[in-house]
Design a protein around this nucleic acid. Structure first.
Lengths: 226, 226
DNA sequence: CTCCTGTCTGACGGGGTGTCAGAGGGGAAC
DNA sequence: GTTCCCCTCTGACACCCCGTCAGACAGGAG
């Protein structure tokens, strides 16, 4: 008896109902996509606070009322973009799984992770900026998208840490904790990359530094006994 | 010949002109402070996007027009709070200067830094959230305040790294780069502390992990030769 | 051709912003 | 105590964007 729906196989998995509850047909979906696309274009060149439903609608060649037919507010449109982007970001875990993490190979793995992470963030900068913004504003949906992305990476890294037990170290620590700290570092540097460059800090050097810290985090060198 | 001002020694160093260009007298300053205080109270319980000049004015028992007498917009009022807070934050560098950074003592220094940083951020959470927010929005004034704070800490840490040359390591790296990465880690974890707890990650463990990473960053253990 | 369903929009009430010109009040001078 | 003046405050307004109707429009089925 659950979901006795005839559940039509939707092409893009988008069976999102419009504001009046009905599911849009092909023409409606087209405008909806056009609105999303225009939102992406505008958010790329406009700070979030200056985003106007009016502008998005105008860019898409429709009226504001049409926008509200498909989204309750701009955030709803942005959430679509955010979900797409963070889904891609979650695949950054691929830089961690099934890699070698000890010695020279491990160091190389770490560098590829750092580069991959920074490149990804750079490529999706406008959307990720909005994600960070609304997460900080307390929007649960955006936080979930963000956590979904970062957690996939963190878990993978924690696995790598837990697996790569070197030197029979007895000083181990919760792998998720170290992984969280390292992913935090990556996320913050990626988000403030421009600011750092602007302030005279060379990103390649920070890349190198983060590579080392990750290597250390995974391989857990000796620390003073408490 | 510079500043031929009679430069009255203002109590709080606040010779901020009002919107009409005139410098407020005692009564005006009082309302101005009251407005700032009310802004702080409201921002503590309201997401930034819901901050209304109207509400602040009402809380201060004045009219919105009065608010605009002293600030061009809410951001201007928030900037005062932000500057105060980040000035305090810059003093976190005290957890770094004149400390020992090798061996057990170094490990303890690292932990104190982490604890101090997290405590500070927690204590000033609402304002720092706004600082992060507006920095991300591209507001140069807030970014400057933020950078001023974090950079003081980063510089101090870089000094510690440069000074504590262990084991005659030839693999050294730009100290500012490592310091930037570590401070980024601290800032991100501090800002997302609640989110992490909410997601089942234990902060004490992350504290431990960050302590280690800082210790490693400062003492620069061996990495594979490239 | 016609109808009907899905799609779009003009027009409007509501609320916050930012700006006047002018009202109000407190202290210095007498 | 009274007057006067300047600092301080505010009511009122125009503006803009939001979000929501009821109804106009289009294009495929019959």
């Amino acid at each position: 008896m659950p979901t006795p729906e005839d559940a039509p196989d939707v092409a893009e998995g988008d069976l999102t109902p419009a504001s009046d509850g009905r599911i849009p047909g092909p023409r409606g979906l087209a405008t909806r996509n056009r609105l999303i696309e225009c939102t992406a274009n505008i958010v790329a060149v406009t700070p979030y606070s200056d985003l106007r439903v009016t502008d998005v609608a105008r860019a898409a060649g429709t009226s504001p009322a049409t926008f509200y037919q498909y989204f309750v507010d701009i955030d709803a449109a942005l959430l679509v973009l955010a979900t797409q982007t963070t889904a891609i970001g979650a695949e950054l875990a691929g830089y961690i799984k099934n890699r070698r993490w000890r010695g020279k190979a491990g160091y190389d793995s770490a560098r590829e992770l750092v580069d991959g992470f920074l490149d990804f963030w750079q490529a999706h900068l406008p959307v990720l900026r909005v994600v960070d913004l609304l997460t900080e504003e307390g929007d649960a949906r955006f936080r979930q998208a963000r956590v979904h992305m970062l957690n996939a990476i963190t878990r993978a890294l924690a696995d790598a840490i837990a697996t790569s037990k070197p030197d029979g170290t007895p000083q181990a620590i919760a792998p998720m904790a170290t992984a969280s700290a390292l992913v935090s570092m990556l996320a913050h540097v990626a988000a403030h990359r421009e600011g750092m460059e602007h302030w005279g800090i060379e990103v390649p050097q920070v890349t190198e530094a983060m590579t080392r810290l990750i290597y250390w985090g995974v391989n857990n060198p000796r620390v003073p006994s408490s």
